[in-house]
């Protein structure tokens, strides 16, 4: 069953230089429990799409259906709670003047999850779930490393007990070793909690290892969508092939795959 359905959604921004079509007539579905990667370069419309799913932007046309109910501009707290976000830049995603616990707790307060007394316990549980010590809730974000901050960002989303998490380039600002650990954590959490991910990224190597399906965006249009396996073995669109061909690779097996794709018609 599809948890999220995007139906002919467009978004046009009115600017001084005329209208900009950020997203054009996009339709796709995300099944319960799957990880859909949304791939594209800057200006592809992937972030605009994410913001519409999150309710930060309203679509200019089309509708977004979540759990069978069309989402309107005014979402209920329950609808907001069901869709959460993990951001790209862990440095900016946490308020420097607020303790880690305070940031994670915000959703609990807004949605009224648990009694007031229970909330700190839930915050600590969320921190432990992402591999951080519970007493980190008293610390300020300044003392944390990039990887730790990103884990706090994940804990903040998880504390709200969402069904769908929009991951907006969640590891592209992290070092390689940290990125690998955070990606594993995200995978484990999805399995354990039956979460659904919309994973927005430009990194196809990451996509290959975390996504069930891939949606390729270019200039606001959905170029191609399909199972990860198929997209990487037999991409239909030249643009998809070009994207895969541009990925910097480290081992010979990868190089071989890239070269085969480049030679294909």
């Amino acid at each position: 069953m599809s948890l999220l359905r995007i139906n002919g959604v467009s978004k046009t921004f009115q600017t001084a230089g005329g209208p900009v079509h950020a997203v054009r007539d996009v339709s796709l579905e995300v099944a319960q429990g799957e990880c859909l990667a949304v791939v594209g370069e800057s200006g592809s419309g992937k972030t605009t799409l994410a913001n519409m799913i999150l309710g930060i932007l309203a679509p200019s046309a089309g509708e977004i259906v979540f759990g069978g109910t069309p989402l309107t501009d005014r979402r209920s707290p329950a609808q907001r709670r069901a869709i959460q976000l993990v951001q790209q830049n862990p440095l900016s995603a946490l308020n420097p003047k607020r303790s880690v616990g305070g940031s994670v707790r915000l959703g609990l307060d807004v949605y009224g999850i648990g009694t007031r007394a229970e909330r700190w316990a839930r915050v600590e549980a969320a921190l432990e779930e992402v591999g951080l010590p519970a007493d980190m809730r008293r610390r300020g974000p300044a003392a944390l490393s990039g990887g730790q901050r990103q884990r706090v960002g994940i804990a903040r989303a998880l504390a709200c007990e969402p069904d769908l998490v929009v991951l907006d380039e969640p590891t592209s600002a992290l070092d390689v070793l940290v990125q690998a650990r955070v990606l594993r954590l995200l995978n484990d959490l999805r399995r354990k909690k039956g979460l659904t991910y919309v994973f927005i990224t430009h990194d196809l190597a990451v996509v290959r290892n975390v996504a069930d399906r891939v949606a390729v965006f270019k200039s606001g249009r959905l170029e191609e969508i399909g199972p990860t396996e198929r997209i990487f073995s037999a991409p239909e669109q030249p643009y998809t092939r070009a994207l895969i061909g541009a990925v910097p690779v480290v081992d010979d097996a990868e190089l071989k795959l890239r070269n085969t794709l480049a030679e294909a018609p």
């Binding site: 979402r75 907001r80 951001q87 900016s92 308020n95 607020r98 915000l106």
Partner: peptide
């Protein structure tokens, strides 16, 4: 434009919270 404001908006925190509890401490 900071991410923490976006985070509070996604959660659906009221405007008063975002202005006085999130942004104001950074202006103090």
């Amino acid at each position: 434009e900071e991410g923490y404001v976006l985070a509070a908006e996604v959660i659906g925190a009221p405007t008063a919270h975002i202005t006085f509890r999130e942004i104001l401490p950074n202006c103090l």
